[in-house]
């Protein structure tokens, strides 16, 4: 565990040293802030409810695009520059490397989400002041919405790290993560609408938005958690396999 943390720490400081972290945070807060508060027709004031549902559905998409941008270099760059050889010949296992990198991105996403907490306080404040009759903020739905975003992020980080592990070009890793991600994010959901019977159910089960929406409503179902965790874990597992392959196959 200590080794995983050493790797995660290096990765995090590399995010912050290279400005990637700051740019990502500014863009993330900018996008979400704009669509949550300013864009007419969809913003908090228009909806007339003291709820962060609007923010969650925006973050659902912004994270989808931001995460591949953060994960694309994690292994692809190390493979390209050869530093992966130095890293993997140290006293670390391939699994620790993969999990360390996962942890770094997960922490960065957590920081980004933490920085949106003022939204919660602001809307809660409006509600207390009786502004426009917004009603009270549903605290448990808000918490489970954040949980949903974290779980969804974990899943896409797993997919992103896998995409980064199978080639050494960052752009290809980025696009591949989006390509895999778009199936879960959108295509499976759309197909579920068109298919019937067991096929429809299968597509429904694989659709991120179906799972996310139920969590964002405040319904925490183990099946949803298992979905996010298992897809994320599968991504990390396959990334580990693609690293370990060098030692097994000629």
């Amino acid at each position: 565990m200590k080794t995983v943390w050493v790797i995660a720490k290096r990765e995090l400081s590399s995010f912050f040293d290279s400005l990637i972290a700051y740019i990502m945070l500014i863009l993330f807060l900018g996008f979400n802030g704009f669509f949550t508060w300013l864009e007419s027709g969809n913003d908090v004031f228009f909806s007339g409810q003291a709820s962060l549902r609007g923010f969650f559905s925006i973050a659902f998409w912004t994270l989808f695009f931001f995460i591949p941008a953060l994960t694309m270099r994690l292994l692809a760059e190390e493979k390209k520059t050869g530093t992966i050889e130095l890293l993997l010949t140290k006293a670390v296992t391939d699994r620790q490397v993969v999990w360390g990198k996962f942890l770094a991105v997960f922490i960065l996403i957590a920081i980004a989400l933490l920085l949106t907490l003022p939204y919660v306080f602001t809307i809660d404040g409006f509600a207390l002041l009786g502004y426009d009759g917004l009603g009270n903020l549903d605290l448990s739905a808000t918490l489970s919405g954040y949980l949903g975003l974290l779980l969804m992020s974990a899943m896409y980080i797993g997919i992103g790290i896998f995409a980064s592990s199978i080639n050494n070009n960052q752009i290809v890793a980025f696009l591949m993560a989006l390509l895999i991600g778009i199936f879960f994010q959108f295509i499976f959901g759309a197909m579920a609408g068109n298919a019937t019977g067991w096929l429809g159910e299968l597509f429904e089960t694989l659709s991120t938005s179906a799972h996310f929406e139920s969590i964002a409503r405040g319904v925490i179902d183990t099946r949803d958690i298992i979905f996010f965790v298992s897809i994320g874990w599968l991504g990390l597992f396959l990334a580990e396999v693609s690293l370990t392959k060098r030692k097994v196959i000629d």
């Binding site: 290096r10 590399s14 040293d17 290279s18 520059t81 050869g82 530093t83 050889e85 130095l86 010949t89 140290k90 006293a91 670390v92």
Partner: peptide
């Protein structure tokens, strides 16, 4: 691995550190 010190060919390093 912890008993081995290794300097690979081309000496790859993290240039941003």
């Amino acid at each position: 691995k912890k008993h081995i010190g290794y300097l690979p060919e081309h000496n790859p390093l993290y240039l941003d550190m």
